[in-house]
Nucleic acid binder design. Structure first.
Lengths: 143, 143
DNA sequence: AAAATATGATACGTACACTTACCATATTGA
DNA sequence: TCAATATGGTAAGTGTACGTATCATATTTT
């Protein structure tokens, strides 16, 4: 019989391992941060800083997440006191999201760390290769 | 103040979205399969077909997963009747893993589907770009 | 051989990630 | 305007994914 394709060569497998490396680097570097955030939590804070007052559905769509997942993430951020949630009086179904003062501080402290760790994720590649990879990745996730 | 890097350009974010796309394609295509497997479950079956009799720790290391996670995955595969687990008499700490007949069948049925869906994950890229991407991804996850 | 150490597996806890179903509120359209 | 539909949020269920602790069994060291 013909042998199946090697798992290790499959896009799906490679991408999963890449993501694994990415989250490992993120949480490792985050250990030395004043506030410990997961990468999703960071993404949420980042978007809320740019677009204060949006609701959860919009937040979810901006960072390409599921509504239910974002609900959980926001709940944890609220519990940590980094995000404030209040009912939108114009549309009582929606909850308006904002960073708290602590949230602003946390984001400001963590942002440089996150920016710095990005290169490390692709640390096995040369600068040119990293640029090339990002180019291809951007194209691959296009809607 | 200087503006933070755009989230959408960050390796970590891009990789996460890629992985999201990958798992979405996988589960979408799997809906029409005779046996519905997750990508991790498939990876486990694939490795067990090549190396019957290995234990969970070795399986975890071969597909680059955490021991605890694989324990759960194997438990579900056992429940589905696709994998058999038995205490290794040479080392009573270890559990020896094997595909059942159903497991062999499931793998044979699903393997072509999985192979076919791989290209779709990178469907936004040309053939040449896909090859280039895989090359870079392989290098990026090197140990 | 007893003590120290290492390793396989599991349990528990935390955090995603998504699906489906459901409730509340808005919007649309007959 | 009132029924049909759409949308925001939550709840429940499934399945990763990993850290830490613990237990059982092996291996190594003294």
């Amino acid at each position: 019989m013909t042998s199946r394709d090697d798992l290790g060569q499959m896009p799906g497998h490679l991408i999963r391992r890449l993501n694994q490396r990415s989250t490992a680097v993120f949480s490792e570097r985050m250990k030395s941060a004043p506030v410990e955030l997961t990468s999703v939590q960071y993404a949420a804070l980042d978007v809320l800083a740019r677009e204060p007052g949006i609701d959860q559905a919009r937040l979810a769509s901006l960072i390409a997440y599921d509504r239910a997942t974002i609900g959980e993430v926001v709940k944890r951020l609220e519990k940590k006191g980094l995000v404030a949630r209040q009912v939108n009086e114009e549309d009582r179904r929606a909850r308006t999201l904002r960073l708290t003062a602590d949230g602003e501080t946390a984001l400001a402290q963590v942002a440089p760390l996150v920016a710095a760790l990005q290169a490390e994720i692709l640390g096995k590649l040369t600068e040119a290769e990293q640029a090339q990879f990002l180019e291809l990745a951007r194209k691959a996730v296009e809607p």
